[in-house]
Nucleic acid binder design. Structure first.
Length: 521
RNA sequence: CGGGGUGUAGCGUAGCCCGGUAUCGCGCCUGCUUUGGGAGCAGGAGGCCGCAAGUUCGAAUCUUGCCACCCCGACCA
């Protein structure tokens, strides 16, 4: 769509110089990303575009997810979906449109979403009387406006009313993969777009305890996915009342730390209590013959995860993808002299087949139109975990060259048994990326005991700050107003040192425990 | 929604203050030479200067309005 402001210009305005040879690099998708120290947002934005993940669409705040970006999302979907199935959930699909009246049934819920809804008011266009283009046909006004779903609790609960009569219908464990629209004031590729893709689970249970267990179970699924698939260490915890989901009794979340020291909420799981059941009158006959409202939960993760993964692992050369979520895990680049490609390919293809036989996602880059150096740089930018460079010279010596993306190391590998070695290397890279992110998070999680220290840390050493807080929404708000830091969560796995009582950083009032503060995306 | 910035070829730009029909680089096309870290040389194609009105003999340039995008803030997954 023609980014009309050049990123060079933006960089210059932001006051920093660029890396090498940029005009050349611009088109060849090269090294010349903004260096992130100076402006992390710009770096991230440019990285997403250059790596071919997504770009801004012509529609305000929306994005076009390009094939490479979508491939990552598909891998995420597949892994998560398997985990949902294992925990007993089924997929279904609910309407995109929500009658306006549905939204007003749960008071807190309206409050939370009313300000950011796209509303459908008409169902027809007609030719403009002045002969230019089309206008909305005033005759085609809807009796009741439709909201483009910002989340599906309301349509789903109005449906559940019909699905649930007896305790025999419970628990009802449904998930939906969908796109939703929230008219946010400010957008950012993947992290906050007007339209985004996600999954939302909506369950109904006979008892509050079952609902709470479900909420926690799905939180654990998310944490498991973040850590073992995305290689992203997360803090599991509960939100404060201020940050709680509109209509929930309790909101659990996983919080991750990005490389610029800002936190990112990566997933949420809500205990809805009986709020939605009451709002939509969903009752069931108990075994004992009574009539009770069901207990609900909802939980979701979105394409934001892609953004989080990029911001957590990537470097100035481009993306660094964890092997389990890399669309291409191994790229093979042939090194050859003119006219010798076919001959070399014939020798390389069996090797590629060996990798495929082990279930490795491998690409043989036999493009004759680009040179090896260009291919190296391009695949690095796209975050392919392992690159193999193979020339006739190597094959004659029964070796090949391996380069790993995470450490940038290069070494030679003997051909016999190389496929198994590569497979093991992918596992090692996955673990290394996680460890690196974990080390980073630990190094950037600090404790503050005084207000001045708290402020200093946020400004000078951004990251999580563990601090005492008196437990009141008012204090939380004051801290936010003065420092832009929010309480990310009250962590569930709290170290004994942090579980001990203390005094509030701002008011000096008694505090039961430390909580995680940070500036956040 | 507020503050700031920018729209010129596929991408990045010069020109604008001081009006005279658009500069350069990359990419693209053709040919030759190259190919173990983003190739070299030669030739070539490509533009309603964001849109609309106005001023003027004449507008990329001046005036007004609109639109779009980027950054920052408030809001949020």
């Amino acid at each position: 769509m023609g980014a009309q402001t050049g990123w060079q210009k933006s960089c210059r305005r932001a006051g920093f110089s660029l890396r090498i040879n940029q005009s050349y690099a611009d088109n060849r998708m090269s090294k010349s990303l903004p260096t992130r120290r100076e402006d992390y947002s710009l770096w991230y934005n440019e990285l997403v575009k250059r790596a071919g993940l997504a770009e801004n669409s012509a529609v305000r705040g929306c994005m076009v997810v390009k094939p490479y970006g979508w491939a990552i999302w598909e891998l995420m979907q597949r892994a998560l979906d398997d985990m949902f199935k294992e925990t007993g959930h089924e997929n279904a699909a609910f309407p995109l449109f929500i009658p306006k009246s549905f939204l007003s049934k749960e008071a807190a819920h309206v409050e939370g979403f009313a300000k950011e809804c796209a509303v459908v008011t008409h169902y027809r266009l007609k030719a403009s009387p002045d002969g230019k283009g089309v206008i909305v046909d005033p005759e085609a006004k809807l009796e009741e406006e439709l909201i483009v779903r910002p989340t599906s609790e309301t349509v789903i609960w109005s449906t559940y009313k019909n699905w649930i009569q007896s305790y025999r219908d419970l628990p009802l464990l449904i998930n939906q993969w969908a796109n939703v629209v929230r008219w946010e004031m400010r957008t950012r590729l993947f992290l906050r777009t007007t339209e985004f893709y996600w999954q939302e689970g909506h369950t109904a249970h006979a008892t509050h305890q079952e609902g709470q267990e479900e909420t926690r179970r799905m939180l654990d699924v998310y944490a498991d996915f973040a850590e073992n698939w995305m290689a992203l260490p997360v803090v599991k915890g509960t939100k404060t009342a201020n940050e709680r989901f509109a209509g929930a009794l309790e909101t659990y979340c996983i919080e991750a730390l990005m490389q610029d020291g800002k936190a990112l909420q990566a997933g949420t799981s809500h205990d809805l209590g009986q709020n939605f059941a009451k709002a939509f009158d969903v009752q069931f006959a108990t075994k004992e013959g009574g009539l009770e409202h069901v207990w609900g939960t909802s939980w979701g993760v979105s394409t934001r995860l892609i953004g989080g993964m990029i911001m957590a692992h990537s470097d100035d050369e481009g993306l660094v993808l964890p092997p389990r979520l890399a669309p291409i895990q191994v790229v093979v680049v042939p090194i050859y002299k003119t006219g010798q490609l076919d001959e070399l390919s014939a020798r390389i293809r069996p090797l590629v087949a060996q990798l495929k036989a082990l279930g490795i996602r491998v690409k043989y880059d036999d493009r004759d139109t680009e040179r090896p150096g260009f291919k190296f740089a391009e695949w690095e930018l796209k975050g392919v975990p392992v690159r193999l460079a193979i020339g006739a010279r190597d094959l004659d010596q029964d070796v090949l060259e391996v380069a790993r993306r995470d450490t940038k190391e290069k070494f030679q590998l003997p051909l016999p048994g190389f496929a198994e070695r590569i497979q093991a290397l992918l596992t090692e890279i996955q673990a290394n990326i996680y460890q690196k992110a974990l080390t980073f998070r630990e190094a950037n999680t600090r404790r503050a005991d005084t207000w001045t220290e708290f402020q200093r840390l946020l400004d000078e050493e951004p990251g999580f700050v563990l601090a005492h807080w008196d437990g009141t929404p008012e204090t939380e708000q004051r801290i936010k107003d003065e420092t832009k830091a929010t309480i990310r969560c009250l962590s569930l796995d709290v170290a004994s040192e942090d579980a001990a009582p203390g005094v509030c950083i701002l008011t000096g009032q008694p505090s039961a425990r430390r909580v995680h503060f940070a500036r956040a995306y």
